[in-house]
């Protein structure tokens, strides 16, 4: 469908500016005009930065890479919503046609104790890497590539594992959760492997280690509010959190380590 021609937008931006992790930040207001509704949100920020460079101000730092919803690098809170108003959409996939002329847009970084702000809208998400390093892998023999059909996987299990594997690790679940909990992220990783035979040997060790790392990083606990699911650009369902809970308690009660 061709969208009806919409006139260019004038916008008021309220952007979080913070020079570095240890210097307190503040909101600053910027005016933008002549923004095409066909621009993506990040293109709009690019225009803002060009304007800032011209006026001699530091450009706004924000993370981005693929700009097509795959890498999970981008992600800011737009008017109180992680990745903005659309469901199953990353910030880079959001278009300016979702906004009206004259709108004020508040742009903030993910806020969580475990995701310290590095600069402006950029946060340090290495806590996620450490959770994955603690157990989000399978140990395999190196050498030649194994025969693709050596281990048969029932298609339903494979589907569920793939649903979980769709997580792009952007951190929107943490950003949207009132407890800044990373349960949706962690559950996606645990569920991904729990559904596959390759993941079974390290099953108990994995879930215990990942949850202990999750807690250590300072993320909150899940109170089943499900804001994470609504904010997730990859549509990861909270059923994975239930599976994580099952996996964890099973491992906790039966692990011999």
């Amino acid at each position: 469908m061709i969208s009806p021609v919409k006139k260019n937008l004038s916008l008021n931006l309220r952007v979080w500016r913070q020079p570095s992790a240890d210097i307190p930040g503040e909101f600053r207001n910027y005016q933008l005009s002549d923004i095409s509704p066909d621009m993506s949100f990040l293109e709009m920020l690019d225009i803002l930065n060009e304007q800032l460079v011209e006026s001699g101000e530091e450009p706004v730092a924000f993370d981005h890479d693929c700009r097509e919803g795959i890498c999970g690098t981008c992600g800011v809170v737009i008017n109180g919503q992680a990745h903005g108003p659309d469901n199953e959409t990353t910030t880079c996939q959001l278009h300016m046609r979702r906004f009206a002329d004259g709108d004020t847009i508040v742009i903030e970084p993910w806020r969580a104790r475990a995701f310290p702000v590095l600069r402006d809208l950029v946060v340090d998400r290495s806590a996620f890497d450490r959770i994955v390093q603690s157990g989000g892998y399978v140990s395999v023999r190196t050498g030649q590539a194994p025969d693709g059909n050596a281990i048969l996987v029932p298609s339903q299990d494979q589907e569920e594992a793939m649903d979980a594997a769709a997580c792009i690790g952007c951190g929107a679940c943490v950003a949207a959760c009132k407890n800044a909990s990373a349960m949706l992220f962690t559950s996606a990783k645990v569920s991904h492997f729990a559904n596959l035979p390759q993941g079974h040997p390290e099953r108990k060790k994995r879930v215990l280690a990942m949850i202990s790392q999750h807690d250590e990083e300072g993320f909150g606990a899940c109170t089943n509010t499900y804001e994470c699911e609504a904010a997730c650009p990859a549509a990861i369902s909270v059923t994975h959190i239930a599976r994580l809970n099952r996996e964890y308690m099973k491992a906790m009660l039966t692990s011999k380590e």
């Binding site: 109180g80 919503q81 104790r113 904010a231």
Partner: peptide, 16 residues
Amino acid sequence: NFAARKVSYAKTSSKK
């Protein structure tokens, strides 16, 4: 859970 977010958002809005 309260400690997990030191700085709160200026604005919050549910996506549910």
